[in-house]
Design a protein around this nucleic acid. Structure first.
Lengths: 223, 223
DNA sequence: GGCACGCCTTGATTTAAGTCAACCGGGCCT
DNA sequence: AGGCCCGGTTGACTTAAATCAAGGCGTGCC
């Protein structure tokens, strides 16, 4: 674990609750490693012994149905934790995790971390805050899935990825389109069609993974 | 607040973390009240100052889209808390809450409870556990919405409501069918059709709000 | 008793989106 | 260079479910 990794981890919201000594102790119980593109971190149903922090790269969390169909539940990027909620259910990962590109991860031990939590209420409060945000995001996602059309979800996603202050406003898609489609609960064909339709209305220009917004306000009104 | 209320509240998982003294202190900061059928507890967007525990009755949590459409996000029954995650986001209720029948509620003050959390890690751990279960349920719901058909969701819901040990296996629906439909993300017409289809296959018998299961195993295989 | 309202069911029709199929282009490997 | 694989696009067709409309029934109120 190099000093940039340590700095990035320490600057994150969650572990800011730790004293210097506590942080050093955490460091003694974590692993850092890099997975190659498409490597699997854990399978759905594996016993949950750790949770993770992304230093760099992208992790895809997927749910597999009995039918074999899959849904991308989340795309986790640098600076974010995942699988921390499973720590409290003493069970198994409800999803599988695979990396979409070379990805550097910090692996934190559940048992050790639970021990930390038991004597640090500030850490508890930060974790509660993190988890309440996750709940909030999931509630919004159910709202989107049930109260919005597929096209509206695409537009919402694109607007969400739009960095502030780019001129002209544009987004570079950092994951394959079929992954984005699954993340949004639509088929890849549908994603293509929605993008094609927005392009035909001059609302966007599409160049492979680059999307230029021609009328952000109109798009906001459609979402 | 009568002694049955107090007993029920104290026996719940969350507050089992409290000492007798702490529990008495909590009691000094809660309100208990009964809402009449269809009364509204809070509106979507209201400042979130409290969370709640259901002593009796049923609370419907709904999300309203800008279009005016609504989705039943949850039906909260006796023994369950709701709105506790909003405590950590210092904001507003993301849903509105209305009671479906006369409902008795305990209202707990967010600020006071946060104070308790700051000095009781056992309470924190129990709340973390409660919230991780909520996350788990929401993940499952997204799975259901995206990877299952409407009919499968209906069957899953019915099986979930099935009490153990009833002979013949049967369920009495305790909320209106159009509410169940919204909870499942389908229209009431679709719910009628699914039930009619299952009845035509002799898998269930429907008498108003009573549903008798004729072949539980077959239903499980369909869900 | 009559009326209004709400819930539910059913039929007909429409629609959003999925499914299937084919083609294209780019990257990787031999 | 050629072949294979993968991701993406597009067209044709299908389907699950929504939408629209109408009717029936039960409950509560006057």
């Amino acid at each position: 674990m190099n000093s940039a990794d340590i700095k990035f981890l320490k600057e994150g919201y969650l572990l800011a609750a730790l004293s210097h000594q506590e942080f050093e102790e955490v460091l003694a119980h974590v692993s850092v490693f890099t997975l190659m593109q498409n490597e699997c971190l854990f399978d759905q149903g594996d016993p949950a012994t750790h949770f993770f922090f992304v230093l760099s790269g992208t992790v895809k969390l997927c749910r597999i149905a009995p039918s074999g169909e899959e849904k991308v539940m989340d795309l986790v990027r640098p600076g974010h934790y995942f699988a921390e909620a499973v720590m409290f259910m003493g069970g198994r990962y409800p999803v599988y995790a695979r990396v979409l590109e070379p990805t550097r991860l910090v692996e934190l031990d559940n048992k050790h971390f639970l021990g930390l939590l038991r004597s640090n209420t500030d850490l508890c409060m930060r974790l509660l805050s993190t988890m309440s945000q996750r709940i909030h995001g999931l509630v919004n996602e159910i709202d989107n899935l049930t109260l919005q059309s597929g096209a509206q979800r695409v537009i919402g996603y694109l607007l969400q990825q739009l960095p502030e202050g780019t001129v002209p406003p544009c987004v570079r898609l950092t994951v394959p389109k079929h992954v984005i489609a699954s993340r949004l609960g639509i088929q890849p064909e549908t994603l293509s069609r929605v993008l094609a339709k927005l392009r035909s209305k001059q609302l966007i220009d599409v160049h492979d993974d680059q999307i230029v917004f021609n009328d952000v306000d109109a798009l906001r009104r459609l979402s």
